[in-house]
Design a protein around this nucleic acid. Structure first.
Lengths: 131, 131
DNA sequence: CTTGACCTTCCAGTCACTGGAACCTTTATA
DNA sequence: TATAAAGGTTCCAGTGACTGGAAGGTCAAG
């Protein structure tokens, strides 16, 4: 399989695959006579695993850990679950931060007329508000 | 005021102030005889404005727009309100994405025993799941 | 024979800082 | 007075995870 083909099937960009190779997340692909990278089904599975883990918010370094766990037949499932729950906590913190921002902006906009006049409580609050 | 003093009062790092100057968000500060940057109360107000806007999730380029609007006495408050509501929408999209991740991870962890055994539905799903 | 779609490498840019080196100035203390 | 700590200065590099683009090689089709 060429890189474009495997990229398509895994749902990632060819450039991303080369990037993953460059940072050691995946081993260097074998090359054909013409220098093209050559992928096999196992590589596709790995890339799909990576794509899914990334989509769940795991950083590349964490995906590396997950891959190691995946390949380790003597792993403890508690290690995997710990990573998952830690990620949920991290996501919760991010959501909370975003919700706080949203609340603050909504509070500011509530009293803004949003018309052709210059008076604007949003700017007033940014300038000196207790917000 | 030295940079450390104004940084303290505005709630930003001295390095951040120099960075803002370097990217043109604030004008180059006047210098004292010894080469130190010298800030006045107006600069402090500007930096506080910037700090608050950044805390609300506005990018530096957006803060620049807000500053321009703030200084423009012939602005329309609708322009400010539009930026605020656009930012709320952006935050909403981020929250939704994070919540989707969280749901997916929680779904995966639900069936994981999290003990000393290797069997792990989280890895199973990442490997080939319909997740 | 050429066009277009692939592939290759390498460098630079994104965003908003932050760390660190190497150096100078001011202030406080022994 | 010496010196050390705390502050200031500049400049360069790194962060994360790609992405864009240049410059070039390869391959399949018309």
């Amino acid at each position: 399989m060429n890189i474009g083909e495997v990229a398509n099937q895994a749902g990632v960009a060819p450039k991303t695959i080369r990037y993953y190779e460059s940072v050691g997340l995946i081993p260097a692909a074998t090359r054909r006579a013409n220098g093209y990278r050559d992928y096999r089904t196992a590589d596709l599975h790995t890339l799909r695993f990576i794509q899914r883990a990334r989509a769940l918010g795991f950083a590349v370094a964490e995906v590396e850990e997950l891959l190691t766990l995946w390949r380790n037949k003597r792993r403890k499932s508690s290690a995997v679950k710990a990573m998952a729950t830690a990620k949920i906590d991290e996501i919760d913190r991010k959501i909370a931060a975003l919700q706080a921002m949203k609340r603050a902006i909504r509070y500011l906009t509530a009293n803004c007329h949003g018309d052709t006049r210059p008076e604007c409580p949003i700017l007033d609050e940014l300038a000196g508000g207790r917000a």
